[in-house]
Structures are given as C-alpha cells and as structure tokens.
C-alpha cells in the first residue's frame, strides 16, 4: 500500500468521525464554555439575568471563591458530603441487588434469558418521574408498603416513609437507577469466556473460589462501567429526594442547590460555579475509572 492511499484512507475515516466531533463541540464544549462564562460573569443589576463573560480576560472569580468557601468548611460542604453518602450507599445497593441479577441472566438463565432481559428493559418504558410519583403513593402512611409490612407483622404501626429520612432517598435512588446498572454489567458478564470458568472448576476450585478468582476479576471492567453509568446521573439528581420527602432540608443533595441557584435565584453565577465544581469532581472520578479499567484490561491480558 502506498503512502498516498494510506493517507487517503485516514482522511476518509476522519471524515466519518467529523459529524461526531461537530456534535461534541456543539453540544458539549460550547455549553461547558457557556457555563464557565456564566460562572465567571456578572448579573444584570436590573433584571438579575446572567451576563456571561465570554472573554476569559474579563472573568470574575468572586462567585466561585464564595462557593469554594462554603464548600470547604461551610454549609455546602455538608451537602456535598451528604450527596456522596447517598450516592455511595445507593451504588452499594445497586451492586448488592444488581450483580446477582446480571450474573443470573448472563450465566445461568438459558431459555428464560430473553424474557428476563425484556423485563429488565421494561422500567425504561415508564418515565422516571412517573415511577417516583408511584412510589410516593406506595410509601404513604396508608399505602401498600405499610399495609404489606403490617400484614407480615414486620411493622406494628405504619411508618412514615416520606418523612425526610435518608433510607427512603437511598432506596429511591437504587430503584430508579438499577436498570442502568444491570444492563452494562450483564453485557460484560455475558462476554466472559466460559472456558475460563470451566478451567477453574477442572483445576479443582470450588464454585465459590472459581467465582471469586475468575468470574469476579473478569467482570471488574463491567462493574466499573455500570457504576459510572449510574453514579454520574445520581450526583446531579434533584428530583428523587424532592419527591420522596416532600422537600425535607435533611436530605437535600447538591443537585437541589444547583437547581435553586439557576432557576429560582438572582445568582446564576453561583449555580454555574456549583455545576463546574460538580463536573470537576465527576471528572476526577472518570479519570480514576479510566485508569482502573486500563489496569484491569492489562491484568486480564496477562
């Protein structure tokens, strides 16, 4: 193959990538720059609308500095910590419930696999909001959850689930996001070479040891991907807790603060600064994820 042909082919492939790159620039880079321009901009003194500073030389970091002060050692810090807790617990719940399900569908279910997969996709048919609203009904004092728990005599008296307690929020997050967790994990578990597992058993390892030393390590990339797919939107969630607690200050997450500052306040710069801070945090998590997957891949190839 001559150099010219090779170059021509590269150009063709670059051409194929162009729409994607344009898309990314238009809907990712530009909006992020807009967020930065708002965060470091000013507000119209009369109408209180954002006056974005498009020129980085005009950037004013006062709002960001105030936000950082409140995050490190202030009230917003507690909201960040709380958000981390909720997301962490919800992720643990997703793993505890989702992993066995994904494992069963991918490795054990034979004839029922199609049906089970369809059932897993089913929640996507209903809007997230509708599902949360359904829960508010189920969890009411005289709702079915209390009735069932009382019928089984697990509860003596109806519990007020919507009282602004954190377990309700964590349960809501797990319920809402678990389909996003199971599907990527399923596809990764399904791809594991069955011969490796058989080899483990042939070499005398028990079923558990084979799982622990063969299946689990091989599913780490899938587990990571599933975790990232679920926790990224969880960090920005602001409606699950609002719906399931009728707006209790005890369970406010960082997404609620962003919503307040961007939609209901005269300080969009503060909201935009919070968006940037959250993005930075998620970026750090993403970098960690990418490094971990690369490491896992290298180990798997060894």
């Amino acid at each position: 193959m001559t150099a010219t042909v090779r170059r021509a082919r590269t150009t063709v492939w670059a051409g194929f990538a162009a729409p994607g790159i344009v898309w990314l620039v238009a809907f990712f880079v530009v909006p992020i720059y807009a967020v930065m321009a708002v965060a470091f901009g000013s507000i119209d003194p009369l109408l209180r609308t954002a006056r974005p500073a498009w020129n980085p030389l005009d950037w004013d970091v006062a709002a960001m500095r105030a936000v950082l002060d409140r995050v490190f050692g202030g009230d917003l810090g507690r909201v960040f910590v709380r958000t981390f807790w909720f997301v962490g617990l919800a992720l643990a719940g997703c793993i505890a419930i989702g992993y066995p399900v994904a494992y069963h569908v991918a490795r054990k279910a034979q004839r029922s696999r199609g049906t089970l997969l369809a059932l897993l996709v089913l929640p996507f048919w209903i809007s997230y909001l509708m599902r949360m609203l359904a829960w508010t009904n189920l969890l009411q004092q005289d709702g079915y959850v209390n009735r069932v728990l009382q019928w089984f005599q697990i509860l003596d008296a109806p519990r007020n689930w919507l009282d602004g307690d954190w377990p309700t929020v964590v349960i809501g997050l797990v319920y809402g996001y678990i389909p996003f967790f199971i599907l990527p994990l399923y596809s990764s578990l399904e791809r594991i070479d069955g011969r490796l597992i058989e080899a483990g058993r042939d070499l005398g390892a028990s079923a558990f040891r084979t799982f622990w030393h063969v299946t689990l390590p091989l599913s780490v990339p899938g587990l990571m991907a599933a975790s990232v797919v679920t926790i990224l939107p969880m960090f920005g969630d602001y409606y699950t807790n609002s719906y399931l607690t009728s707006g209790s200050p005890r369970v406010e997450m960082i997404g609620n603060q962003i919503e307040f500052y961007l939609r209901g306040s005269s300080q969009p710069q503060t909201g935009a600064s919070l968006v940037l801070l959250l993005m930075l945090l998620l970026f750090v998590l993403m970098v960690y994820y990418l490094r971990a997957t690369m490491r896992a891949q290298r180990e798997a190839e060894r």
Partner: peptide, 23 residues
C-alpha cells in the same frame, strides 16, 4: 416543574437562555 425532567441538562437550559445577549 413536575412535567420536566432532567439532571444537569435541566439546569443548563436557563444558562443557555441567559446567553442570548443583553436585554
């Protein structure tokens, strides 16, 4: 608000609206 759903996307809308220029 109940009729709307969006994570940071929702929060991004007012920002973009705000970018339309000065009054």
């Amino acid at each position: 608000r109940s009729a709307r759903l969006g994570v940071l996307l929702g929060a991004g809308v007012p920002i973009l609206n705000a970018c339309g220029g000065d009054s």
